[in-house]
Write a protein that binds this DNA or RNA. Structure first.
Lengths: 273, 273
DNA sequence: CGAGGAGTTGAGGCTAGTCAAGGCCCGTGG
DNA sequence: CCACGGGCCTTGACTAGCCTCAACTCCTCG
């Protein structure tokens, strides 16, 4: 179906770069990708028709695997992935969750082999941009710009792990996680108050670096104090402001003479009246 | 807030891209940067002479500040920076330590304002690549390539925070941190066994997400068991292999015959696979 | 030589890990 | 259709280890 044609000549020469020449399962175009990334493509530009491969990934299937040779970077079109790294002792550390319009595999650029594994949490599809084309993309400003922004955003997202970890208490970590999810949902135009978790407790536990039982208890505690309600993976944030207050007590409060008691209460959970 | 602003406008000559047009304190060239990044510049190319600004940063001074408008990305030429993020409750979370040949400020690309603050831990200097030039760089392959790789490496580095956090025990976290430093030192051609910490205990504590006293005790414990020796910020890894074992064989008690290392429950977190 | 920051050490309370058992959900198969 | 099975999730009891508070030492610098 694809141009099973020659791979001659540097792409620079040819104005027609076909990013889908290794098409896997479907075809998309640059304008599809740009739309996904919130960049309305300048219509009329010939490059908007630039084909870009789309790959579908089944639930629980890996998109790329740690240690294998990197061949592409990916933009999530639909579905959610978990990014994990298998440590030397065999423990699978969850590094993050990646959804639509986010980039995957950019971390493999410098080493040429994937330092992480990405696994689909549900049926998913991604745009595939082969690495060997990256160099020839100088002309295609729109795509380069999108790549830069996505990589930059991925970097900023990664920083959130540390921000989450800086909280000692499990309920605080969980509330930060839920708020992070809430923001991402909102960014995708979905409800920030009510959503379904795509990952299981084990993944959340790994991501927050606490025991799975602790996650369970933390969910219970947040519900107990009226901040959320939940049923399995279905979560509803009842008191957004309260959750936010709880989420940002990192360490023991500095010194707030009379407020100390109040802060300590919310720190210990029961929530302010 | 030392905005060493020498905002004297240069004649926007147009064709001649002068990345140092906002030169702050010194001048470098593209070939200098490429050499720093381990890419021998193809001599003879005219672009090698492309001027790139060099900015010096005094100890404890910020290179860029969270929330301010992003204007450039930086390549560390000398010195070490700590990257921090001030959370809503005022807690300064250390996200990482960045040294020579690593990139800073790339995370600001997508938002156009810095999500993090970078502070020099000692006298430092950086190459400055203004953002508004990034788009016009399509021609300069070498620079674009270096930027991509550095950003990718930064992303991979960030993942290590999570890997470190996945350890519950403080000694395990500290040993992973020391091994990380060791690797970086080796990558820069310096001794991986003996080095001087550029950051204080407080920064380490924040980075590892444990209390400062715990850091102190963990140093003591590692020395006690003969894995390292230290005096203030001077660290020597005595038993590299043992340190590595402690850092990663963390699931089982690991019977170190008669060593004082109480690796009783150095688990690497639940998961109970 | 003193002041102050950085680092260490000690005591105690409390969170979260571990182990263990039970409940819930949803698949498969009779 | 229901019964069974095996995940996933929850809950309880116990204990290890970390955070907190507080005092102290060491080092540096004025």
């Amino acid at each position: 179906m694809t141009h099973a044609t020659t791979t001659e000549q540097a792409p620079l020469a040819a104005k027609v770069i076909d990013l889908s020449r290794n098409t896997l399962e479907a075809r998309g175009s640059l304008s599809d990708l740009l739309r996904l990334m919130g960049r309305e493509p300048a219509s009329g530009r010939p490059e908007s028709a630039l084909p870009i491969a789309v790959r579908r990934v089944r639930r629980d299937a890996p998109l790329c695997h740690q240690g294998t040779k990197a061949e592409s970077i990916y933009f999530v079109r639909s579905g959610t992935f978990k990014v994990i790294q298998t440590l030397e002792d065999g423990y699978d550390q969850v590094l993050g969750f990646v959804g639509p319009s986010q980039v995957l595999g950019f971390d493999a650029l410098y080493a040429e082999s994937h330092p992480t594994t990405a696994i689909a949490l549900d049926e998913a599809s991604v745009f595939v941009v082969p690495l060997f084309e990256l160099n020839g993309l100088g002309e295609c400003r729109a795509l380069v710009d999108v790549i830069h922004r996505a990589a930059s955003a991925a970097l900023a997202d990664q920083a959130e792990i540390a921000a989450i970890m800086s909280a000692v208490r499990a309920e605080v970590r969980l509330s930060r996680f839920l708020l992070q999810l809430s923001r991402h949902m909102a960014a995708r135009g979905q409800s920030p108050r009510r959503f379904i978790l795509r990952m299981d407790r084990r993944d959340i536990a790994s991501y927050l670096a606490v025991a799975i039982e602790t996650i369970s208890r933390a969910f219970g505690a947040l519900a107990e104090s009226g901040l959320i309600t939940f049923r399995n993976r279905e979560v509803e944030i009842v008191d957004m402001e309260g959750l936010h207050r709880l989420a940002f007590v990192t360490r023991r409060p500095l010194e707030l003479p009379d407020q100390a008691v109040v802060v300590r209460q919310s720190y210990c959970l029961p929530a302010a009246a």
